[in-house]
């Protein structure tokens, strides 16, 4: 005779049956569900019976909960002591193994690559040759790199400026304190953020203010120079924008938000990045469209070496610089107090 299991309800077949019959799998869900349905169907059960069953049910639930809590506690305890050690050791071994194997595989690859600085390497081909030989003549930019990133391969650069823009938007989604809801709540949040901020920042530091008073104009001027000179010498939008952004951040650190908010708020950020990016996208769209359809774009290259030369490159550099400067400053203020 087969032995009857006393926990037949919990063996796999009835569980499968129950699972097919019902949506959930949690035993407790099912029990309450069944109980209520049963009481619906058989109203003849006496109130006493129902009460007794409910009490039983409650006791059972409590036991399950206690058991689960104990299990959880044990697992957690193990996780905090022995388990953590084990996992950490495992991770360390895994890390070293992986690091070594990745490096080994890649080093093998490097040993098979063309040798460093070789004359006949594949990268010394007609592409780079034309950039170097004809760059000046075709783009009008003395700085070959500027010609390359803003004229030859302008589409990539357009994408890159949008990488910066999208990152600024994403950081704004994450860190900006919300405008909505209770205004009192907002001001409290903001005050807290500013108070937190002040814990780590010296207030009205006289040395910093004096030095910044001298340095900031020079930094700004240098940034503008780099920006406007991008097509003539080393520099350009990305570097010039970074310098201007740094200048703004220094000014903010020395004189506080009260001073910068007079001329730079979130509205300024939005307007500037919109104007710069829209100009950039439209100008480049026009130039792409003309190029692809073999139309004359009507943009002259000017005399190489002049400040107003090399077609759109100067204006594009300015646009990129504005985006970069705004983004740098926005990152800084958003991280510091969640607003601009």
């Amino acid at each position: 005779m087969a032995k009857q299991r006393n926990d037949y309800e919990n063996s796999w077949f009835p569980r499968l049956q129950r699972w097919i019959a019902q949506g959930g799998t949690r035993l407790s869900d099912q029990m309450t569900e069944e109980l209520s349905e049963a009481s619906d169907a058989h109203r003849v059960l006496s109130a006493e019976d129902v009460a007794r069953r409910e009490v039983e049910q409650a006791v059972h639930q409590l036991e399950i909960q206690e058991h689960e809590a104990a299990l959880y506690e044990r697992a957690h305890q193990w996780g905090r002591t022995k388990g953590a050690k084990l996992i950490r050791a495992f991770y360390a071994v895994l890390a070293v193994l992986m690091c070594v194997s990745v490096i080994a595989v890649l080093l093998t690859t490097v040993s098979n690559l063309p040798s460093f600085g070789g004359e006949n390497n594949p990268i010394n081909n007609e592409v780079s040759q034309r950039y170097i030989e004809k760059g000046l003549q075709e783009t009008g930019a003395v700085n070959i790199v500027a010609g390359m990133i803003l004229d030859y391969r302008a589409f990539d650069t357009l994408g890159e400026s949008h990488v910066l823009f999208i990152a600024a938007c994403a950081v704004m989604i994450l860190l900006r304190l919300s405008d909505s809801g209770d205004p009192r709540q907002l001001s409290r949040e903001r005050m807290e953020a500013e108070a937190n901020d002040r814990l780590y920042e010296p207030k009205n530091d006289i040395i910093l203010q004096r030095v910044a008073g001298i340095l900031v104009p020079i930094i700004m001027l240098f940034g503008v120079y780099v920006l406007f000179n991008g097509h003539l010498g080393p520099g350009g939008g990305f570097s010039g924008g970074a310098v201007i952004g740094a200048g703004l951040i220094l000014y903010l650190n020395a004189y506080g938000f009260a001073a910068t908010e007079r001329f730079f708020t979130i509205k300024t950020f939005r307007a500037v990045s919109f104007i710069a990016l829209a100009f950039y996208a439209l100008a480049k769209s026009y130039s792409f469209f003309c190029g692809a359809n073999h139309l004359n774009s009507g943009i002259g290259l000017g005399t190489p070496g002049d400040i107003f030369s090399s077609g759109l490159i100067l204006y594009l550099n300015i646009a990129v610089g504005m985006v970069v400067a705004c983004t740098m400053y926005a990152f800084y203020t958003l991280f510091r107090k969640g607003d601009m």
């Binding site: 592409v127 780079s128 950039y131 790199v145 390359m148 990133i149 030859y152 391969r153 990539d156 650069t157 994408g159 890159e160 400026s161 990488v163 910066l164 999208i166 990152a167 994403a170 950081v171 994450l174 860190l175 990305f238 990152f331 958003l334 991280f335």
Partner: peptide, 24 residues
């Protein structure tokens, strides 16, 4: 040479985004 600045810009953006997530 070509596309020289791209990865740097990308790296700055992604680092900022990761730090923002970490702060939150």
């Amino acid at each position: 040479i070509a596309g020289r600045k791209a990865p740097i810009v990308v790296s700055v953006s992604v680092t900022a985004l990761m730090l923002a997530l970490t702060v939150r």
